[in-house]
Design a binder for these strands. Structure first.
Ligand code: FES
Ligand code: FES
Lengths: 147, 147
DNA sequence: TTTCATGTAACTACATATGTTACGATTCGG
DNA sequence: CCGAATCGTAACATATGTAGTTACATGAAA
């Protein structure tokens, strides 16, 4: 099954934008991510609808972050992307007649809901500012290693 | 993304087998689950390789449970199925050069690993015997409601 | 007015799960 | 022993969802 990598993509894009002066074009972001510029527009468009970024058309246009990096969490981004399905595993039949299958579904659903709740908690805990700081730390580490 | 429903399927099948005298054929299980008998064989074959069920060919053959219901947990079944990918969301690039992407991946991986660990813990806690008991409870409840 | 950029629709390419067909191998009942 | 029942497995078909691509309209700046 092909995994949805949009959360990873927009995070990468947003952090590059945060480090960058002025707007970045879909083309530049696409080259950065190794993705198609139309796909970038498609995905960033969802963030725009959520008010997290803004786009300007025409000469020297592109994408800009329009939210506070300290506020925007992974959870906000996940929601902006439409809360895509998290799990690649699911029940065969969501509304079974059979009591056996109902018992199975109840057990699986319980476990998956708990895992999802934990994941959302962790997502809410991590902001773009946190990731930017982590990047800065890694950058300093690399320079220290090289010297 | 199309979700993998094999865990749900084998649980349903195993519980029906547990309630059933003698072996059950792939055909019978397929009718029960609403699945193709070849798919049943394909999936149950993985459980056979893990020693959880046995198959007999020929007249009055079929599938039998060959393990203790109190021992076999959801986790055992997940492992028997080859530990398929749990998440439908992933990193765009698993081995990135870019430090920004490394920081992003690290944060996402941490959250997903924690969620996966919790899920595996819950899976390990639920045995086939537990599910069979839950089925019995639901069965009694339905009869009580009908009376 | 030309060029650069987003916005969007429509189609293609690809991956993966499941379904289907076909046939061989094995076991049992008569 | 023969034939029906059943698993084992390969090969192919179908369905679904993500990402890529092409095409063109819209808008803004030089
Ligand atoms: S891809 Fe992150 S550096 Fe351009
Ligand atoms: S499908 Fe569970 S009762 Fe047959």
């Amino acid at each position: 099954m092909k995994r949805d990598s949009r959360l990873s993509s927009v995070l990468h894009a947003l952090l590059h934008m945060a480090e960058h002066e002025g707007p970045m074009t879909s083309d530049a972001l696409g080259r950065c991510l190794g993705a198609n510029p139309v796909v970038v527009r498609r995905t960033m468009g969802l963030l725009r609808e959520a008010g997290l970024v803004s786009a300007e058309r025409g000469h020297s246009g592109g994408w800009r972050i329009s939210a506070d990096l300290r506020i925007v969490s992974l959870r906000h981004l996940h929601e902006a992307l439409g809360e895509p399905a998290i799990f690649a595993i699911g029940n065969r039949n969501e509304v079974p007649e059979c009591l056996v299958e109902q018992a199975v579904n109840a057990a699986l659903d319980k476990a998956f809901l708990e895992a999802e709740a934990l994941l959302m908690e962790r997502f809410a805990d991590v902001t773009l500012a946190d990731l930017a700081a982590d990047f800065t730390r890694r950058h300093a580490e690399r320079r220290a290693t090289k010297d």
